[in-house]
Amino acid sequence: MKLLEISGLTKSFGGVVAVNDLSFSLEKGQIMAIIGPNGAGKTTLFNLITGVYPPTKGSIVFNGRDATGLPAHRIATLGIARTFQNLQIFNNMTVLENVMVGQHTRSTTGLMGAVFPMGPVQREERKVVENSLEKLAMVGLADKAMESAPNLPYGRQKMLEIARAAALEPELLLLDEPAAGLNSTETRELVNIIYELRDRGITILLVEHDMETVMEIADQIVVLNFGNKLAEGTPFEIQNNQEVISAYLGEEEF
């Protein structure tokens, strides 16, 4: 079953066409990787899917519903979560609170409830804390829950972002270069976390430059170059695709 269907997606910034007439679709339960050289339009694609800005043309269908042009917070409620290429941790909060914000759409306390926290509100709050701690445990940060988020080292902050996104309990999780800046141990941890998320039924779309990791975990790969789709296929197909090889070699020569 198709979870996400992108068709004819185009985004231009003034003269720059960052994403050009892109179409692909994502099966439920898959791990799909988007690869491509710097500036290929990968992050822009994520921004389009998550409603940071509307596409110039084309459509995004999620779970059979048209999600094109919805504002970011509406997209989140549909069940799409993401992490960011350059960390967007809430520096004014603790680690736990960061993840608790992730549970925003999974809780309902309104202003009245916030002002007068009666029984149900407190129960919900406890549930939110529990769920958040569970997400922290999943990424190995349970013992850091009460620390101030900016005090974590970089690699831990990346894990925190994943935990926070997972707290949304999304159907689709977008990870923008999750392995960048991680050492090899941390990358192993990351791979295991991604598998864990997949096993929990979350479909994963990730952007990654670390080819070894991509080839290991991806079921399907889409290659972007200058906003265009260069190729799509299994890791095996992509590794043997002449066009992809020359695009990457071309880049390396440069």
Binding site: V52, Q88, N92
Partner: peptide, 20 residues
């Protein structure tokens, strides 16, 4: 509360807050 955290998250990063 949930509302207070949401508001503080806007200060932390409006992008991330909306994405959640």
């Amino acid at each position: 509360s949930r509302i207070g955290r949401a508001l503080r998250s806007i200060h932390g990063s409006e992008f991330a807050a909306q994405s959640l």
